[in-house]
């Protein structure tokens, strides 16, 4: 793509580095911004700049935060007995959006994967173990993705927490609510059978 201006070319190149944005879309963004008032555009660039410069990671749970402590950790109404372990900040956002969870979080920053060069020491696992030791945690909910590396990480953490006697649970895996059994693939069905629950507990928890 050729551009009449080096300034436009630079802007297009920057935008096209965003996920899912190609050169064409980037050019559309740039032309759109050119039509806007200068102050509107500066507001955008300022927001981006501040977001990047001022955002912090919570010292306790590694969630994104505006200060040292994130909004979840500093909220005294959150149940400190429940600790939900997730891979990434995206998972925190998703779980928060369900409005079903009132405990706290711990963001690992990934899962153990030697192939990608991620060992336990690259993750916030030691900090998690310290939290369980020092805080008032009764249950650790492992909300990791149901992958082989997720399983490895869950097993590893549960071993490291074995001494603490804390209760460890994982997300249920299986048939989606409202689904039709005949459309569920057989692995999901098999897994759902393996992780079946007594009926009473089903009703009482819903």
């Amino acid at each position: 793509m050729n551009f009449p201006s080096k300034l436009i070319e630079d802007a297009v190149n920057e935008f096209s580095r965003l996920p899912g944005v190609g050169k064409k879309t980037a050019l559309r963004f740039v032309l759109h911004l050119l039509k806007k008032e200068q102050s509107d555009v500066l507001q955008l660039s300022d927001a981006i700049k501040r977001m990047r410069e001022e955002i912090q990671y919570c010292k306790i749970c590694f969630n994104i935060s505006d200060g040292e402590k994130c909004s979840v950790c500093s909220n005294s109404r959150r149940d400190e007995r429940l600790l939900c372990v997730v891979e990434s900040i995206k998972d925190v956002i998703n779980i928060e959006n369900t409005n079903q969870y009132n405990g706290r979080y711990h963001v690992l920053g990934g899962v153990i994967s030697p192939i990608e060069g991620i060992g336990p020491e690259q993750l916030h696992i030691d900090q998690l173990i310290d939290r369980v030791k020092n805080e008032n945690v009764e249950e650790v909910i492992m909300a990791l993705n149901p992958t082989m590396d997720g399983d490895t990480t869950i097993f590893f953490i549960s071993r490291k927490l074995a001494e603490s006697k804390v209760r460890i649970s994982t997300l249920a895996r299986g048939v989606a609510f409202g689904g039709d059994l005949s459309y569920v693939d057989e692995f999901t069905l098999a897994r759902s059978l393996q992780t079946r629950r007594p009926f009473e507990s089903y009703l009482s928890k819903q």
């Binding site: 153990i112 336990p120 082989m148 399983d151 490895t152 097993f155 590893f156 071993r159 490291k160």
Partner: peptide, 12 residues
């Protein structure tokens, strides 16, 4: 080697 991590892979 971390024995717990090795156990995890072995069990799987």
């Amino acid at each position: 080697a971390d024995e717990d991590l090795m156990d995890s892979y072995d069990l799987q």
